[in-house]
Design a protein around this nucleic acid. Sequence first.
DNA 1: AACACCATCCGTATAAATACGGATAGAAAT
DNA 2: ATTTCTATCCGTATTTATACGGATGGTGTT
Lengths: 210, 210
Amino acid sequence: MNEIKLIIADDHELFRNGLVELLKKHDDIKIVKSIADGFELMNVIKQEFEADIVLLDLTMPEMDGFEVLKELKSLDVKIKPIVISMHSAGNYIAKCAKMGAYGYLLKNTDESELILAIRTVHKGKKYFSSEISEKMINFMSAQSVSENVLSKKETEVLGLISKGLTTKEIAAKLFVSSRTIETHRTNILKKFEVKNTAELIKKATEINLI
Amino acid sequence: MNEIKLIIADDHELFRNGLVELLKKHDDIKIVKSIADGFELMNVIKQEFEADIVLLDLTMPEMDGFEVLKELKSLDVKIKPIVISMHSAGNYIAKCAKMGAYGYLLKNTDESELILAIRTVHKGKKYFSSEISEKMINFMSAQSVSENVLSKKETEVLGLISKGLTTKEIAAKLFVSSRTIETHRTNILKKFEVKNTAELIKKATEINLI
DNA sequence: AACACCATCCGTATAAATACGGATAGAAAT
DNA sequence: ATTTCTATCCGTATTTATACGGATGGTGTT
């Protein structure tokens, strides 16, 4: 039969469950697994599991979506990843496309688009909505060069900055030297092309990174 | 006749026009004026104009909604103001209620609620949705005491901070001493109950102040 | 093997922000 | 008439953030 076997990987339980409920109504789609982290996901995939598509969140605790994409590419599996993220920043989209994602959806998308994306990808085609494509293209043409995507540590540091922690406090919390955090801050500012914390936080929230 | 005479005061033309279109469909409501600033609004009101209700935006260039409320209260007119704002912060709502607003709506409200609010207020009753009331009550009970609403200057400074300007640059731009801006910053931090700029910007964006 | 990126650390220096504690004139509120 | 708030300014001191420039081991890519 032509049933589409789907895995959901997202660390937000409510969101996962919402998706499950929503997809239940569609007979051609069957959720075979619902998983909270990339690490667990890869374990499942590597062992025995057969699935057609994985709906992949980018931000997960142990192993994030980028890492999953990378590993999926190296493995020789036929599972097609559709990224489903709250980030609409062009650089994220571009990076995912480059890393082999078959689709990119925003978390605030609607049901019909989700279904459309799943079916399109299942047919072997890629699905990037016009909105998403546009953002990616804008990003590419903005010559912003390669990947000013924040590293995992940088993302973590950014989150702590936005909570009002100082460099010293962050260093203590992460058990590293203040120098390290200073460097992270510097690099984050560079990647965002801003000159101070205030502008950084504003841009980060605009982009929904925080 | 029971026609409700309405004035719209909002500096966003698109929004104003949208409202007009939307309200056209309701025969009991007549838009008698559409205005972009509080100053102009008060001129119109003071001269001759008769109206029942004014839909009042809080953020307008020359004279903002708070000032309008204040002046309306002092004048002896029967125009009832309904505030329509994008800010859902409890302190804003509370301040408006205190200053004599008959209603408070968020800009993302829907048509039915808007109409309901207008008709309710026209009958002489106040209209605060349960969502709005709740936020106000939470704010009141949060002992946050009086009005940590930013003054006009503070709001302006906050906006410039979020654009990445430093204290010195802001001072130069506003033709005042750096000391003044430093004090503004201090006061803004106090009012938001945060300890540094990063946290401030985050909170301000959450609250939609920027 | 060579290259690129990441996370980690270090030094020196300046600029900016925050923490104190004041002051004053004017407007507004009660 | 008194108080409260706002916008403006000042001093002193400390803490943070930013700007330079540089280094290393690990990991992953090509």
